[in-house]
């Protein structure tokens, strides 16, 4: 087994290779505005480091978010197209599950929260690092304060709002290494992973910018 994992749902552009036993190469760069530029060179670097070609990959794992849409789509479109070109399966994993796995908490419950911008967080609760209890959802921190009160929390969304998440700690962003490890574990256990479809959680903003193609109602 050789899994290529990638995630662009948080400010991190992160890529990893997993041979079924271990992560054999990985790369993580934090730059929320350059997912499109950074992802392919990172894939190339990780493969080079492992001394492998993309053709050797037997499956793709991609973080399905939730996350800011423009960046999120870079990872999903890349994974989809790799799958098409290589003829290998593309597996989706909730990005928050990858963060929960990296948090390595045996006994919860705990919260994973990432920055959803617009003063909101994407969040989910976990019984342990492998078991999601609720979510993912998108909310204002103040609106969920009661529900997460007293719980430890990980992720940039928790670190950003200490009033709601006083027990927030690292990891801040998801790593493809933990996504890959989680996926390898699930696949080995014969579990089905989800389809690589984006978790947007919000409807699109229906604002038409000026000077763009007019489409008139029928």
């Amino acid at each position: 087994m050789l899994l290529l994992a990638l995630d662009t749902a948080t400010p991190a552009v992160t890529v990893a290779l997993h041979d079924g036993t271990d992560v054999i190469a990985s790369s993580s760069q934090v730059d929320a505005r350059r997912h499109g530029e950074l992802l392919l060179p990172a894939v190339d670097r990780v493969l080079t480091e492992a001394g492998l070609k993309l053709e050797a990959v037997t499956g793709i794992v991609v973080g399905t978010g939730p996350g800011p849409y423009t960046g999120l789509r870079v990872g999903l479109m890349t994974a989809d197209t790799f799958g098409l070109a290589l003829g290998v399966p593309v597996h989706g994993l909730c990005t928050l599950d990858g963060l929960a796995y990296a948090a390595d908490i045996e006994k919860g419950p705990f919260v994973v929260a990432t920055d959803a911008r617009r003063k909101e967080v994407y969040w989910a609760t976990y019984a342990d690092s492998r078991t999601r209890l609720t979510g993912p959802a998108v909310d204002r921190p103040a609106d969920i304060a009661e529900r997460v009160a007293g719980l430890p929390a990980v992720g940039a969304g928790a670190l950003l709002y200490p009033d709601t998440f006083p027990r927030a700690h690292e990891p801040e962003h998801v790593s493809a290494a933990s996504l890959a490890s989680l996926a390898a574990e699930k696949l080995a256990a014969g579990e089905e992973l989800t389809a690589p479809r984006p978790l947007y959680l919000r409807r699109p903003d229906a604002q038409v910018p000026k000077n763009y193609k007019v489409v008139t109602p029928k």
Binding site: D205, Q207, V208, V214, V215, T216, K218
Partner: peptide, 18 residues
């Protein structure tokens, strides 16, 4: 999908492209 908005909604277009 854009017709009811009277113009191309960028986020709707991006989702459809994916």
């Amino acid at each position: 999908e854009h017709a009811r908005f009277g113009g191309v909604v960028p986020e709707v277009a991006s989702r459809a492209h994916l």
